[in-house]
């Protein structure tokens, strides 16, 4: 009986957007008289940090500081239509809609400033720190807040923008499967290291190390969060989780967390990653998507590592100690 170590790898792609498209998102952006901007949506934050990244994208496009932007979601009486948060679509779809809305709002802001400065619109610029100025003439500068207030009280105008994004729906050819399913694809490659106890069949995952290519990271800490959480979830799917422990028999399905197994903090492997950015052509600032894919490559990487360690190839999930022990038994002469 021994503890055997092995290494396995896997490389995957993951598509962005509701399959086949036809999944629109809208956004509205308007300035308050105090010069902050409100982004109004009906998209949902599942915890991935959508509110935060959408605020960042809006601030970037408007040319104002991040803390000048408030993201208001989700209320169907105020927020325009959104298909929902799934299919790794939210940052891509909502981000594109917000850019369109912010471009329009920015234009309205610059128009007012141009009028006030008696300059042409293309001479006006935002410094990203809350000021508008005539290019090259720092003396002719005014805080965004002042221009926003002037728009309302002096010029009687709104500073607002509307944005929508939709990848047109593709139909599938029923004979050949020809279709245009996604907007772009992100990629990942994971290397897992495991130790298998041949006495008990238990697997300890020692490390999960991955490279991801996600187009553009709007917020690297949040991308890292998806990768770390996904690595854990992938490990959990690979080794622990099932609602039918004797699948296909339906018996003994778990009712609560004491019966539904998942690894805890004591089972954590070392998790490490690098993130490449090769901007997509159609995502906001080149974004692809990272929400769903992070649990995918760890699963086969772990299963391949178990094979490398023991010579037992397991083809069914989850890989329980029982399956490993049976596999080891089958290999004995």
């Amino acid at each position: 009986m021994a503890k055997l170590r092995g290494t396995g790898m896997a490389a995957v792609n993951y598509p962005t957007g509701m399959n086949l498209g036809g999944d629109p998102s809208q956004a509205l952006v308007h300035a308050t008289t105090s010069g902050s901007f409100v982004v109004t949506l009906s998209a949902t934050d599942l915890g991935q940090g959508l509110r935060t990244v959408i605020g960042q994208i809006a601030a970037e496009t408007l040319g104002v500081a991040y803390d000048q932007v408030v993201v208001d979601t989700a209320d169907t009486d105020t927020g325009p239509h959104d298909m929902g948060t799934f299919a790794s679509r939210a940052t891509h779809r909502v981000g594109n809609a917000v850019i369109a809305a912010a471009v329009e709002a920015r234009k309205a802001l610059l128009d007012v400033a141009a009028e006030e400065f008696e300059a042409s619109v293309d001479e006006i610029e935002l410094d990203g720190h809350g000021n508008l100025m005539v290019r090259g003439v720092p003396a002719r500068s005014m805080p965004v807040a002042e221009v926003a207030s002037m728009a309302q009280f002096k010029y009687g105008r709104t500073i607002a923008g509307r944005g929508s994004f939709m990848k047109p729906r593709s139909e599938v050819d029923p004979e050949t499967g020809a279709m245009d399913p996604d907007s772009t694809e992100a990629h990942a490659c994971t290397v897992a290291e495991v130790e298998v106890d041949t006495e008990t069949g238990e697997v300890t995952v020692l490390s999960i190390r991955s490279a991801y290519e996600v187009g553009r990271q709007v917020n690297p800490a949040l991308v890292q969060g998806q990768i770390t959480g996904g690595a854990w979830m992938g490990m959990s799917h690979a080794l622990y989780e099932t609602t039918a422990p004797y699948y296909p028999a339906p018996d003994h399905s778990p009712r609560d967390f004491s019966e539904y197994l998942m690894p805890g903090p004591l089972e954590l492997p070392e998790i490490d990653c690098v993130v490449l950015e090769m901007p997509s052509s159609n995502g906001p600032y080149g974004v692809k998507g990272i929400g769903e894919m992070t649990a995918n490559s760890p699963i086969p990487a772990i299963v391949n590592a178990i094979y490398h360690a023991t010579g037992v190839r397991i083809d069914s999930l989850p890989v329980t100690p029982e399956k490993i022990l049976r596999g080891l038994d089958a290999r004995r002469p």
């Binding site: 490389a11 499967g177 245009d180 694809e185 990629h187 490279a211 187009g215 490449l276």
Partner: peptide, 19 residues
Amino acid sequence: RKLADDATLIETMQAAAAL
């Protein structure tokens, strides 16, 4: 039957190998 246009599998594997 869609032409690949955002493929980066090779670069991603190169980065993982380096890691």
